[in-house]
């Protein structure tokens, strides 16, 4: 590309709201992140944190209404996707960026054979003949490790196991060799042994094709295994970004620290788990100041009034906490424990 300095994807101050009967739910409140070629960014958050909605806005598959992009930019190779016409976006979708969904069974069309669905990518986007597209589909299925691809290309989604279906989803996303892949909880519905197979495949293909990958997940274990960078989301905002190694050693936001301490470890047996008290906020009624303050052991008066900006922690790290320094040093509040 000519603009070699611009990142592959640059999301700036994205805001998404949902207009519902009960009011406006602010699902995404000023999210910014960048992804480079060959890089894996993990977006971590619990349900309702806005991680999937951000991805849908980037892909341009947000349901509008009730959803509405209220502000911000999505720069893909320097071009703002939010300003493009739907027709132009459709050309980018699939060929330049593609998405892998969580639930492969409901994302695939049950009345079309797997081969037809894969071939569609080539006939629609590349204008290939049916015969060539079929050959390409078989090649793709072999590439994602589906045994007996020549025979199985004629089969329907229900004839495949969960892991195999997810491989087909990956094959579909990779068909046109996009520069960016967004994987939304790609292994959450799978068993651990199959999850390991699928993550392995995805990571291998990513480095082979030098793609940018946004991995959306709630699983800190998966993140530690594959990601380069991590962005932690809470109530529609990014609360911490960091290279993956640093965040596990010394989190700079109390929410990240709470999450890390609340997961049971395979290699440890503790008596009681640390639990973040309370519940995530209602998106129609996000607390003023820092959204995490009602659950935070370090919260002071300033946290209830002033929304913390993303403070620069180091060259590569940022944290949206007024007391990031104290968090980084591992300080506990007197009320904690």
């Amino acid at each position: 590309m000519s603009t070699s300095t611009a990142p592959l994807l640059d999301v700036r101050d994205l805001q998404v709201e949902f207009h519902t009967r009960d009011g406006v739910a602010k699902a995404v409140n000023g999210v910014s992140y960048t992804v480079d070629e060959g890089q894996t960014l993990a977006v971590l958050g619990e349900s309702g944190s806005g991680k999937s909605v951000t991805a849908q806005a980037i892909m341009g598959i947000l349901d509008t209404p009730p959803g509405k992009i209220a502000g911000g930019q999505v720069l893909f190779r320097g071009q703002d996707l939010l300003k493009l016409k739907e027709e132009q976006r459709r050309k980018i979708r699939g060929s330049e960026m593609a998405m892998i969904f969580q639930d492969a069974l409901s994302s695939l069309n049950p009345v079309l054979s797997v081969g037809d669905q894969l071939a569609e990518m080539f006939t629609v986007h590349r204008g290939m003949s049916k015969k060539d597209a079929r050959a390409k589909s078989i090649e793709l299925m072999e590439r994602v490790g589906i045994p007996g691809a020549k025979e199985r290309v004629r089969q329907y989604p229900h004839q495949f196991s969960g892991g195999m279906r997810q491989r087909i989803m990956i094959a579909m996303a990779l068909a046109l060799e996009p520069a960016l892949i967004i994987a939304d909880e790609p292994t959450t519905a799978l068993d651990v042994t199959v999850q390991a197979q699928v993550m392995d495949l995805l990571a291998g293909l990513q480095s082979e094709l030098n793609m940018g990958l946004i991995l959306i997940t709630h699983d800190l274990g998966v993140v530690a295994d594959v990601a380069d960078r991590i962005a932690v989301m809470y109530a529609g905002r990014i609360v911490e970004t960091s290279p993956v190694h640093d965040i596990y050693q010394a989190p700079a936001h109390p929410y990240t620290r709470g999450l890390l301490r609340s997961i049971p470890r395979l290699d440890q047996k503790g008596r009681e788990l640390y639990a973040i008290k309370g519940l995530p906020p209602n998106l129609m009624n996000i607390p003023p100041g820092c959204a995490f303050n009602p659950r935070c052991p370090l919260a002071q008066d300033i946290c209830r009034t002033d929304e913390p900006p993303l403070y620069k922690v180091s060259r590569e790290r940022a944290s949206a906490c007024h007391f990031w320094q104290r968090t980084l040093e591992g300080e506990e509040a007197a009320t904690d424990d």
Partner: peptide, 27 residues
Amino acid sequence: QALLSAVPVPDPEAREHRERIILGGDV
């Protein structure tokens, strides 16, 4: 052994020096 080795451990330091047994096929 395979099941245990497949569980992602939330520690990026572990990813280099951890032996993973990746099982072939499905149940």
